[in-house]
Structure formats: C-alpha cells, structure tokens
Amino acid sequence: MLELREVCTYYGNIQALRDISLRVEEGEIITLIGANGAGKSTTLMSISGIVPPKRGEILFRGRPIHELSADRIVALGICQVPEGRHIFPDLTVAENLDMGAFLRRDRKGIARDLDYVYSLFPILRERRNQPGGNLSGGEQQMLAISRALMARPQLLLLDEPSMGLAPLVTRQIFEIIRQINREQNTTIFLVEQNANLALKVADRGYVLETGRITMHDRAGALRANRDVQRAYLGI
C-alpha cells in the first residue's frame, strides 16, 4: 500500500533520515520504534508532505506522492495524528471533528462517522461544545484520533498516541486502534516510544536508529530479539 524507497530528509543542512526504505501492506498494523531523536516523527512528516524528502521516493498504491502538497496527500486517504495532538485550541470539540472532515462533501457519511467516533469516545460527545484547548491530555488524544477518523483514512499515521497518558487510558486507546483496524479495515502506521505495547498490537515492526532502519521483522520476532529487548523493551 505504502512504500518508502531510500528516503532522505533534511532540516536545513541536518540530515534526519538516511535512506529509509519500508513497506506497509494493506490492512496491517506496522510500527516504527526508536529512541528520542531517531527520526520517527520526521518519517511521518515526510510521508504527509509536511517535510518533504530531499531524495528518494514515496509510493502510495504504486503512485509517487513525495512531490505532492500536504493537502493532496490527505485527499488520497493518508491522515496523520501528529505527536503532541495539535488540537485547534479555540475551536470546539465538534468544530475540531468537523475540520477532520474538511475534504469530504457527503453530509450523511460525515454524520454517521460522527456518531461512530462519539460511540468510541462518549466523553467527546459530552464535551462537544467546549473549546478543544480546555480538554485534558487524554481527552485531546481521543479527539485527535477521532478527528483523523473523520477523514475516513485508508492509511492512518499515529505518532506516539500513548504519550503522557495514564496506563489505563493508553490501554483503551490501543484497544480502539485495534478496533479501527479490524472494523474499518484501516491500515495503521504506528510510531511509539512504548515499544512493548506497540509490538503487541502490530503485525510487523521496524527499528529506527539515528535516521536509519536497522531491523525489521514480524512483531513477535522483534519482541523475542535480544538486542531489541535490551534497547527498547527494558528487559
């Protein structure tokens, strides 16, 4: 579904990604794990067209997208929940969700999806008229995921959905990620610090170290790998 071929991305003169190659198959959950500053967020931002790669190719369903503008990439069905949630602070919860459906015109479908996300996170329905900036961190994360779902993505890029959340909320969010994957058949690209949890929900995983992919395998195999255990699982 998605393929990165030797992608190199820079911030000014600083190279953040070095020849990243990876594939995401239709319907799977893949995860990208790595330490702080490894380049995980940059990988997602390159895919989304916010920080386009300097060299290399990104193909979505066989079509090159690395030269498209960010809004065109969203229109193809690739949505991102960025690190730090990025809720529009002065828009209400309902308006934030509405922004997620910005490119859609099918009112009925939008209304149905709104019901769906409210059923996933009932707290959002209660808070729908409050400014997004007033929500707690966990509620904002739920809103951020819901907003992305309102676009009906084919591929959902999630950047550290567990960041700053209590273990209970984290578990709930991961349960819902699984549910979205199964019920909506949404392909998921999950970036996580919490490698343990990520490798539990994912089918396959990639390990990123200072801008390079150093390992990739089935999630179970990565969890059993001694190096991964020592570096990322704290075992």
């Binding site: 503008s69 809004d71 969203v74 828009l91 490119l103």
Partner: peptide, 24 residues
C-alpha cells in the same frame, strides 16, 4: 468553509495542512 479554514490555519498551520487545507 473558507472561514473555517482560515481559523484553523491561524491556530495551527501544520495541523491545518494535515486535515487537508491548502494553506497557500
């Protein structure tokens, strides 16, 4: 729609791009 896009862009430009707004 244009007005909403303006408000979203003013509040968070990166996120506006990520929901599909043509910021230019």
């Amino acid at each position: 729609r244009t007005g909403k896009a303006m408000r979203a862009t003013a509040q968070d430009r990166t996120m506006a791009m990520l929901v599909g707004i043509n910021v230019d």
